[in-house]
Amino acid sequence: MLDVRTCGSLAEAAGLLSADRQAHLIGGGTLVMRAVNEGRLTEGTLVRVTDPAFRQMNLGGPRIELGAGVTMAMVLARGELAFLHPAARSIGGPAVRTMASLGGNLFAGPPYGDFTVALLALDAQVVLQAGYGGGRAVALEDFLAARARGGQGLVAAIQFARPQSPGDFRFRKISRVRPKGIAVMTLAAHLPRAGGRIAQARIAYGAMAPTPIRARGVERALEGKPLDAVSLQAAAQAALEGCRPATDAIASEWYRREVLPVHLARLLAGDGR
């Protein structure tokens, strides 16, 4: 039967997780408790973290750090994070958002993981805490690539640079249910511009592969170009590079591939929605 351990410090929780393969961190619990309720998780230990650092937000400097226990509702409560509000608001209803944590979102399988898509387009780093040692920052992309293998221990925090201009950051989640539902796909883009030309674009997709992925082909197509018809055309051509979407109850693989270029074009063109 399941046990619960409450840890007052991140280090303690990280130690428990690394010592016991049957220990699972519980963040907001929106995914963990479902597994408990449905009888898929019946053995082992749930590890709860009450360390205030886990829910801390450092918003002052150019580099933002958010504790992994920060919830979507906490993001929505902070004006400094307005560029992330569309991503946070796209997740569940209000009662899910008061629980759903950023850390948990990093582990949510497709078609979940919408916030992670936004973080990926921000070139975020994940601060991992393995055992009692200190934290270690890992690029989010590498973290996601390794996710399937599991056993990464505790995510303590997430760090990223604040976009120079909030308008450079775009997020678009396509779902079939109004007012909201899970994703057909999710797209995020950070399009910093230098002298009218895109420099170091970051484009990320959700629900187009087993984890959120970077759209490297699109990033290359846009690099050093102005956002015009020519570069948009090139971006659309490269849109599907690296995609391995699934067929699920929301959409077929075929459909996802067909509509991705359309939604990408709208995202890059800045169509609000």
């Binding site: 408790m33 509702a73 009662a95 629980m99």
Partner: peptide, 27 residues
Amino acid sequence: CGQGTCGVCTVLVDGEPQLACLTLAVA
């Protein structure tokens, strides 16, 4: 549902809406 999808278990915890089916009682 026990999955967070239906909202019939919605309660307020310290004034904030939460889904009781997904909330640990000990928390």
